[in-house]
């Protein structure tokens, strides 16, 4: 089982269950939740089932490619099912089976973990899923998106692909992941991982980022005034990533940190509100 085979099997499993195959977003995101296929569509549509790969960037989590299990970029598999089916736990477990995990031979547990994205105003109740003690997925019944209480509840399943793949390949290190016959993760990504860490922690242009952040915030407001939801949301995503970069540099004091998160959350909320308003007008 190569890394890509894990993606193929999840893709096959979920599209056969009726999910639309969405694509990774082209902007830097910290989680699959940021993709409009989740944040906007799971908010507005009564029925929406989708699955996709998301490349996630979390600048603070990098370790200069020294720790084989922590990096600033990793891959999620994201599934949204709305409304949440009553057998969703079974569906999830079967998806693991389809990927080659013999679930009756392992200790699989649903352990309390209520997920929250402070910048998106998104939160829900659910679990982290353990596979023999290793956290492999986040499982969340959304209750709120963009600060708006949901009436029809979507469920979000997020798989940590590198972790599951190391498990399937019986190895300890993501560096050693077989991506395809004869080619490993470190041959493709390690150099980039190191350089991105140098950038995130030491070389990013703090002054420029601060300016950009303010520009992005203003752009969200301007676009919202024009009633352009999708472009405005693009700039919310940029705000969030810029904040993450500044945070990784330690350029934001603890007090400012809370303030900045709140500012971004307020923008997310306004996008969500305008979006729903426009949907109602369409109907």
């Amino acid at each position: 089982m190569y890394f890509q085979d894990l993606i193929f099997s999840l893709e096959k499993y979920w599209t056969e269950k009726g999910c639309v195959l969405s694509q990774p977003y082209q902007s830097e995101v910290g989680a699959g939740t940021f993709n409009p296929a989740t944040f906007l569509y799971a908010l507005s549509r009564k029925n929406w089932n989708t699955c996709y790969v998301e490349t996630c960037k979390r600048p603070k989590d990098g370790r200069y490619a020294e720790n084989p299990n922590r990096m600033q970029q990793f891959t999620q598999y994201q599934v949204i099912l709305k409304p949440a089916p009553s057998n969703v736990q079974e569906l999830y477990l079967h998806s693991l089976e389809s990927a080659g995990i013999e679930i009756e031979k392992h200790d699989i547990r649903f352990v309390e973990d209520d997920w929250e994205s402070p910048t998106l105003g998104a939160s829900g109740l659910g679990w982290e899923v353990w596979l023999d003690g290793m956290e492999i997925s986040q499982f969340t019944y959304f209750q709120q998106l963009g600060g708006i209480e949901l009436n029809v509840i979507p469920v979000e399943l997020t798989y940590g692909l590198e972790r599951i793949a190391t498990f399937l390949q019986g190895i300890d290190s993501i560096f050693d992941l077989q991506m395809q016959e004869g080619i490993k993760w470190d041959e493709i990504y390690k150099e980039a991982e190191y350089e991105m860490c140098v950038f995130n922690f030491d070389q990013s242009n703090t002054q420029m980022l601060f300016k950009q952040f303010e520009n992005y915030v203003n752009e969200v407001r301007r676009l919202l005034e024009k009633g352009l939801v999708f472009p405005a949301y693009d700039y919310v995503i940029k705000c969030s990533h810029t904040f993450n970069l500044l945070d990784a540099r330690g350029a934001i004091s603890p007090k400012e940190r809370g303030n900045t998160i709140l500012r971004i959350r307020n923008l997310s909320k306004e996008v969500a509100r305008l979006y729903l308003e426009k949907q109602v007008n369409h109907e």
């Binding site: 031979k105 392992h106 200790d107 596979l131 023999d132 003690g133 290793m134 498990f167 300890d172």
Partner: peptide, 10 residues
């Protein structure tokens, strides 16, 4: 197997 997988995590 469950033991050895948990050992890896720890």
């Amino acid at each position: 197997a469950i033991i050895s997988n948990n050992e890896k995590v720890l």
